[in-house]
Structures are given as C-alpha cells and as structure tokens.
Simulated assay, not measured.
Amino acid sequence: MSVLTVNPNKALWEKGDFTRLAETMRDSGEELVRQLGIGPGMKVLDLGCGDGTTALPAARAGADVLGVDIAANLVAAGNARARAAGLMQLRFEEGDASALHGVADQSFDLVLSMFGAMFAPRPFDTASEMVRVTRPGGRIVMGNWIPGDPTLIASILGICASYLPKPAPGFVSPVSWGLKENVQERFQAAGILPEAITCQRSSYTFRYPGSPAAFLALFREYYGPTMNAFEAARGQGREAELQEKLAALFDAQNRGGPTRTEVSATYLRVTVQC
C-alpha cells in the first residue's frame, strides 16, 4: 500500500485563511508596485503570491503577471480576484518556489516574492529557480522577515517558535533569508556576482480597522504559524501564556490608536540584477 505524504509547507499555508491577513497588507502591496516601476509590457512572476496583494496591482499597472503559490486555497482566491477585476493578463497557479516545474527558463523581466519564497524548502534550490526563470537584464526582488528583529512579524515568528516542537533534521528557518550573508551565499551559488546583489532594510505596514486584540485574533484564527503555535501551547497548558505575550506585542507595536491598528514591520529587501 502506498503512503500519501503531505508537504508540510503546503499544509501550513492551507491550514488557515491567509486572505484575512492579506486584506491588511493591500496598501503596502500597491506602494511596492509603484516603487518597482512595474508597468505595461513587463512580464512578472510573483512567488508565494497569496491571493494577489502584489500581483493584482502589478497587473492593473499593465504587466503580464503569473502568481505561483503552494496553497491551493490561495490560488483559487487569487484567480477569483483576478476574474472579478477583469484582469485577463493575470493568472494564478499552484507550485513550489524551490521547484518551478513548467516555468520556462529566462521568461520573466521581474521575479518578485514578498514574504513567500522565504518559506519554501531548500533555499539554495529556491535561489537557483528564481535566477533560472529571470531573463538576462531582469531583476529578482524579495522581501524577507529578519531573525531577531523587534518589529511585528519577526517577533510573532520568534515567540511562536518557542512553543513548537523541535524542527525535523535538515530544516532551514525561513527567516534565515533575512540575513545578508545567507542571501549572498545562495544567489552566488546560483551564478550571480556579489556586486549584483543588494540588501536594504525596508518596512511594510499592516492596517486593520479594529483594535490590536481583534487584529491578533485574525492571526490566531487564520495565520498558519500562529495557529500551530496555539495548538502546541494548548497541549502544554501554556495557551494563556502565549496569548498574553502576543497581546502585549500587538499593543506595543500599534500606532493606530485603541480602535484601529496600524503596525509597521521591518524586512530585508533583496534586489538581484541578472
């Protein structure tokens, strides 16, 4: 009898409903598209695209966009948003950023991944695949959360990790993509010269029309890493402790007032010239 294996990364991102969190990221996605100068005639690949926080504004700017995500529910949500917006030049497909089967060599002017490809397994393969599908003269742009950073998402991931079981042998932390030396090593192994790789700290803003406690509830109920942490904490009798730590974090980070949440999170923006 064959045994069905489950891709843990796929299971993680299909577990909740990231679209509920993505709604709080739309403004920053649109601003990023403007900053990158995406426009008509460009071919763009958005890896770990979710339901299209950057893919939709890129398509609205005139680009021909393919969104790829590991989670079938997010791909379906992205295609529904594209249809509703009448964006015929935008499509979403299920796939793994570390093994882009069916994506042709040198086929995109811009390969973009905001907090997506960093979660794919085998980071050296992920870097190699991004380089492979980018045309000569094109760009790769990544946004990666930074380990140990005190702002929201890195802090959430750090807190949650302390409640989760020990990772399996060979596991590479997604936030290792937030360290410049790792970025350099991975893209140089894919044939990129050191001077073609730049890293800078930038920020992404989450905006939610409710209190920090209500915003935290979204993470608890719909964000895979937080959901897993609460399940583990419950089994340890530490659920209330985890809730208290995260509530204090959300309150401290909020700049929107008691009835509205606005939080900026620092990330490492990586630009690779191919």
Rank of each mutant, 00 (worst) to 15 (best):
Y223G: 05
A240Y: 06
G210T: 00
A240C: 02
S211C: 11
A217L: 02
E221P: 09
A213V: 01
R220V: 12
G235R: 09
F215W: 04
S203F: 13
L218I: 05
A252L: 09
R238Y: 03
L242T: 07
K245Q: 11
A265Q: 03
Q243W: 03
F215H: 00
M227C: 13
G224K: 10
A247W: 05
R220Q: 13
L246V: 04
A217Q: 07
Y204L: 05
G235N: 11
Q243A: 12
E221K: 05
Q253R: 15
A247D: 14
E239P: 13
Q236S: 12
F206W: 11
G237A: 08
P258I: 04
S211Q: 09
M227W: 11
Y222L: 08
F215S: 03
T259P: 06
Y223N: 09
F219E: 07
R260K: 14
L249K: 04
E262P: 12
A229L: 06
Y204R: 01
A247N: 08
S203K: 12
R234G: 14
E244I: 02
E239V: 07
G210Q: 03
P212W: 00
E262N: 10
L218H: 00
R201I: 02
L242E: 08
S211R: 06
L246R: 04
G235C: 09
F215E: 00
G235E: 12
L218M: 00
S211T: 07
F215D: 02
R220T: 11
Q243H: 11
K245N: 09
M227P: 14
F230I: 05
E239I: 02
A213D: 12
R260G: 08
Q236M: 10
L218C: 04
A217N: 04
G256W: 13
F230G: 08
Q253E: 15
A265H: 04
F230W: 05
E241M: 01
S211W: 01
T259D: 15
S264G: 14
F230V: 05
